[in-house]
Design a protein around this nucleic acid. Structure first.
Lengths: 351, 351
DNA sequence: TTGAAAGCGCTACCAG
DNA sequence: CTGGTAGCGCTTTCAA
């Protein structure tokens, strides 16, 4: 390559020859400013010869419309915001890709912000996002964020859609999955294959989804005609040791469980790790599918939700609001599906 | 909640009472426009009484500065762009989170665009991104994208950093990992534990990384004093059937391999699936770590790279350019690490 | 310390 | 069909 010896001056472009503006293009093409604007924004109604002249000048000058000026003038942003609590979680990144897919179709850009569970930080980030005059916002709100300012925002004209969990303290469009139904199905399935003592591993952080799924666990028990035993419900997090501890505790029960329902994908993985460590082989069904479930031994049966579809649904909801949809807030609940892989089977318990 | 009966009119905010501008704030606070500007941008040099008056008015009017006007005026964007080929790949989303971490620290926003491998589409998306007058751009470019227009952009003053693979046809800062070294280490490790016939599963799409890793495979063989046998190098993709086929083919060889080196995480998972299907238990080391490697049977030994660190490094490189760093383009190569988990061990081959 | 006024680059309304 | 021109909301001189 002949620019192998390129200097940083070039690389960084510090010569920074002021970017061409429409005025420059107009001058170069020998037409009026408005004509350039018309051509650039594809408005039509311009003489072919002038169109060509402008296009040439645009290319010569490497012109690219200043988006800020354009947005300021038109008052549109062509951007929606998306806030997730952890972009590197596969569930959330799939969510984002569902949203992006829909946004791309509408030629909108997505401004993604990943926030931690620190709700003060989340608020700061969301505020900064909103300053950009987004057309709308999709968010997975951190557990206990104070959403009052968002309500103002909504009232001021920025539609907001919540995903994965409904907001507390405000009303807005929401897309969630049928957490309770999925969990109940898992429990019923375990009952059908012969389990009578089914434990529930719920995630400590009382996140909405865990709570719904725990409720579903109880409903499933009731539907199966099984008694609910508080001793079988444990609070854990994603740590293998914590799950190991819980597993040992359960094993010491006079009437230990033969199966586990886990409310959350990360917890399921931790339980899998703990069981391997312990050589324990309790039946297990987990909420949330994961990549290698099929390669587990036995392959893990899961309640799967489709995060990409959730993202799409949320985006559709948002864009319909942006387009002016009116009417009461909408709550969409997407179905979940039990994918049988064998890990629910009744297997001999061994400590 | 008392707004349970909120109407869509409110939810969508279609009353849309024109957002307050600084002018409104100025009027309300009884001060000049410039004073509001000074207070809002925290410039100082304003009488305390007026500061308070402005702050009150800001709150009353729920004022939020119009970012477009601000950016237009100042010519800054406080935004960097990031283009990845597939946001739902855990590797890429980790990359993004590394970049975001650094951006957040500098109060910059990250505009993320996920593109497919269609290079024409990629170019469109990138152009649209650049129209936003980004301060800089980090990208994982699709294989064969035509990057000439990016070079213009770079020259015009927008620093560009490539990640995961260097650009072809232009010169820019780059962050990659030591693909060749990592692969060679994998092969040497397999040799050390006793393997003499080592296959290489390379990903068909001649992506830069696969090619480097394949080169590393050959280097590793050479370092181990092992002959290179072209029959042992197969091209596969992420499909289990394709890998199954390849495995069967290899097994028919007069002198079949006892171990596999896989150049890519998704391929590794496909091989794992194929081996389970076939009941085959060839030793296996894969480039790229994955979530449940430790739960495989046997646990999968991998060459791990740290995508978050790559993202951080890329962001640092970019921000230093934005800050005016000058000098030749920088190529950063991050080390990889072999994480021994047992899947490399010499085990009896069975068809 | 303060306000008036001149634009940033663009679009949209006019009159021609 | 075309060009001039008045702002979009903000920052930043410049005088006062």
């Amino acid at each position: 390559m002949d620019d192998a010896g390129m200097t940083a001056a070039q690389a960084a472009g510090d010569a920074a020859p002021r970017r061409a503006t429409m005025k420059d293009v107009a001058a170069r093409a020998g037409v009026g400013l408005s004509t350039v604007s018309r051509v650039v924004s594809g408005k039509g109604g311009v003489a072919p010869a002038k169109v060509r002249a402008v296009e040439r000048a645009v290319r010569d000058l490497n012109f690219s419309r200043n988006d800020f000026a354009h947005r300021l003038r038109t008052g549109t942003s062509a951007t929606i915001g998306m806030v997730v609590t952890n972009i590197s979680d596969p569930f959330f990144s799939a969510l984002v890709s569902g949203v992006e897919e829909r946004a791309r179709a509408r030629d909108q850009l997505v401004l993604v912000a990943s926030v931690t569970d620190d709700s003060a930080e989340a608020e700061r980030v969301i505020r900064r996002l909103l300053q950009r005059r987004l057309d709308g916002l999709i968010l997975v709100a951190p557990e206990d964020a104070d959403l009052r300012f968002l309500q103002e925002e909504q009232r001021a004209g920025t539609p907001v859609v919540f995903v994965d969990q409904p907001p507390t303290g405000m009303d807005a469009d929401v897309v969630v999955v049928d957490n309770e139904g999925g969990a109940a199905a898992a429990v019923r399935h375990l009952h059908e294959v012969g389990h009578r003592r089914i434990a529930c591993f719920a995630h400590v952080s009382g996140r909405y989804t865990s709570a719904r799924r725990e409720a579903g666990y109880y409903r499933g028990l009731a539907q199966a005609g099984l008694p609910a035993d508080p001793a079988l419900v444990v609070s854990v997090d994603d740590e293998v040791d914590v799950c190991t501890e819980a597993l040992l505790e359960l094993a010491r029960l006079p009437d230990p469980p033969t199966a586990i329902f886990s409310t959350n994908g990360r917890t399921t993985k931790a339980i899998l790790g703990a069981q391997r460590l312990l050589g324990s082989r309790l039946a297990l069904i987990g909420f949330d599918d994961f990549d290698l479930a099929v390669l587990m031994d036995p392959p893990t049966t899961t309640i799967v939700q489709d995060p990409v579809a959730i993202g799409r649904a949320a985006a559709d909801l948002l864009f319909s609001r942006i387009a002016g949809r009116t009417g009461p807030v909408q709550h969409i609940t997407l179905a979940t599906r039990l994918v049988e892989r064998g890990s629910g089977e009744l297997v001999p318990y061994r400590d």
